[in-house]
Design a protein around this nucleic acid. Structure first.
Lengths: 113, 113
DNA sequence: GAATAGAGTTGTTTTAAGGCAACATAAATC
DNA sequence: GATTTATGTTGCCTTAAAACAACTCTATTC
């Protein structure tokens, strides 16, 4: 498998975010008194993969992370990720663009579909 | 490559969360007037992978998702994922356990190391 | 201290992720 | 309507993700 640069050697900020996420997942698991094997089985993966997740491995499938959060009952946090209502900078950019004519291209102002 | 069940055929809630995340990323990209190719280059991946992300593909590397959020300036949301201070259920479980003697095993109450 | 269980590590095997070329289509600007 | 750009799609190739066995080192419970 080829690995994209972002996954192969992530910038520090991304690496940091993943490490923190793994540590948080570990904390949540221990609080619930679950072994890696137990949580892994609930999620549907091996204990080895659970170890990768707690280590914040960048190349691991996103569903392994999200699925783990789901099994821990922490899926709500995921729903908030990049939520349009919270994307202040995006809203500002959109608003600033409104008065002018369309700069170059793109499907104007509407959010997709 | 083998694929874990959680990634191969995720439960509906996980699939839903990924689809929503992809759609949110797409919205944020369009608001910033970036093509997939442009954003992909900023992140460090191909436009094909960016398409997978916007589709919410479960087997894609987590760093591709996190890296995209990073490039969009939306990394703050990631830091909040499974944050111990927000994990109410975890805190309750921990507190409820405190009075009793250690149920079976595990390194007691401390958050690791 | 013996037994049990969680967890780190290493090597092997399988198989699909991700890059890419090459196309097609849709939309926008001229 | 011709050109340009963004995006979908398909197939091929390389390579490593993920499972597993087989250890090891802990730490806890008896």
């Amino acid at each position: 498998m080829r690995v994209s640069p972002i996954a192969g050697s992530p910038p520090h900020a991304v690496e940091q975010a993943l490490t923190t996420l793994g540590r948080n997942i570990r904390t949540a698991r221990l609080r619930r008194r679950l072994s890696r094997r137990q949580l892994a089985e609930k999620v549907g993966m091996s204990r080895y993969l659970m170890a990768d997740i707690e280590a914040g491995k960048p190349t691991t499938a996103v569903a392994a992370y999200i699925g783990t959060l789901w099994a821990l009952g922490l899926l709500d946090d995921v729903e908030a990720l990049a939520h349009p209502d919270q994307d202040l900078e995006g809203k500002v950019l959109e608003a600033a663009r409104r008065p002018t004519t369309a700069p170059k291209r793109g499907r104007a102002l509407d959010d997709d579909f």
